[in-house]
Design a protein around this nucleic acid. Structure first.
Lengths: 250, 250
DNA sequence: TATTTTAAGTGAACGCGTTCACTTTATTTA
DNA sequence: TAAATAAAGTGAACGCGTTCACTTAAAATA
């Protein structure tokens, strides 16, 4: 059953060094991926060792590192898969004000991630911004931007979308709120994570006054300031002139 | 210079098994504590190995585990020391409305933690609630309650303190907001963590309308619901009857 | 087909945090 | 003072994620 042709596309494979370049390689990668997630989902992340995975998959430990740069990267691959699936699901957003579209986007996200909570909890240290890996580093920028795009769309395509640069800024702020909810959900110790439902209901109640407040003059600046802060604090982007957080030249 | 008397107090030392029971033990513990933090502050947490610390302190690796149950516990001891210092500093809170008292408590906290940011970043995974250790586990309950107490006081002693059970609930919610800001500060990648200043200014702007909103009927229930959610989600406490997050009996 | 090149795969070894059986030193009891 | 007890201190060893020098197998080139 093992074919062995097609090595056309050649150089441009990009990123790391030697990944699955041949068909057999891709098959192995998929096999390791599935085996890993199956064990992690069953036993938990810390309780599953790479030696366990290698043995279960019938390969040597070293081979895992040909396909995944670290143990956590396996779960990160799951997140990337889910974020692609999420992007598909999020296009079905209906017309309406941004707060309703945001809630739809948020609920959809939790529905997609829902069945894989156990493995995903291993990403908390990553979500929360470890050194070089993690959601806010260049490596995973693609996934982040894809999901963030759904929230920017939710804001821009709304019946009450704010104009100018406030629209995209609102979208990015909503994406951050969404990330906070996901983090909460991952940490939620209540049975069946019911406290997350409560949190979303709370958010819902907050969102109506917030959307009214956004119509008063000056509120747009507030949103843009928040957006700028997130980019400076989490992404380490330099402060643009006029952004909050600058010190006045003394 | 080494005295060796006084083993009076005997049994009740509590917690773990064999800690510094003799004077020499306490000296050694302090020595290891200071050496560890000096190295960690200089090189970073991950870059400082226990073998480094042991060598620098002139002891064996194993000895570290007589005084600290884990590497992170060393930094946790620092946090406990700082939280005690914070509790002292926070009593100097002036009279005024709760939003001003809260901002004072928040700023004081960041001032106390400020000089030790580098070691404290190692606590992010802990803050964010790893398994058994961490801020929301019984082991560190004492520090948590001490700091939380300052925020509850800030609410209860305010000129506009809400009555009934809403007062303490507001205090606990403000403590959670404070924790979120501290987490943000630890993750803040901007130069000199300037984005944190911006975040606090944003909070400031939000707090005035919030304190007005708290006066309308029903807002107290909102605060109590938020408080209940935090306790269920983060602490895993059971939902009390009447709390949000319960499912209606079907 | 024989030869070279590249990808797939191995398993021992490393450095880390942590544990443990053990020795040394101090304190209490006889 | 001598024996018994408990705390202080040691260093080898363990299990983990990760790395590396290496072998095997497949594809490209001759």
């Amino acid at each position: 059953m093992k074919k062995q042709g097609e090595a056309k596309e050649g150089a441009k494979r990009g990123r790391g060094r030697p990944r699955g370049a041949t068909e057999q390689g891709l098959e192995t990668r998929q096999h390791l991926y599935e085996t890993s997630l199956r064990l992690i989902a069953a036993r938990g992340f810390d309780e599953t060792t790479l030696r366990d995975i290698a043995q279960e998959a019938g390969v040597s430990v070293g081979l895992l590192y040909r396909y995944f740069p670290s143990k956590r990267a396996i779960v990160l691959a799951l997140y990337e898969e889910l974020s692609a699936r999420y992007a598909e699901a999020a296009v079905k957003m209906g017309v309406g004000p941004w707060r309703e579209r945001f809630l739809f986007a948020l609920r959809t996200s939790l529905e997609v991630l829902g069945p894989h909570r156990e493995p995903l909890t291993a990403l908390v240290p990553v979500l929360v911004g470890g050194k070089e890996e993690g959601l806010f580093s260049p490596g995973t920028a693609f996934s982040r931007l894809r999901v963030q795009g759904a929230f920017v769309d939710a804001a821009l395509g709304a019946t009450d979308a704010p104009g100018g640069t406030t629209g995209p800024a609102l979208g990015r702020v909503l994406y951050m709120v969404h990330l906070a909810v996901v983090l909460w959900w991952l940490l939620d110790k209540s049975p069946r994570q019911r406290a997350t439902d409560g949190l979303i209901r709370l958010l819902e109640r907050l969102l109506l006054p917030a959307s009214l407040a956004l119509k008063v003059p000056g509120a747009g600046a507030f949103v843009r300031t928040a957006d700028a802060l997130f980019r400076q604090g989490l992404l380490g982007e330099p402060a643009a002139p006029g952004d909050a957080g600058e010190e006045p030249a003394s």
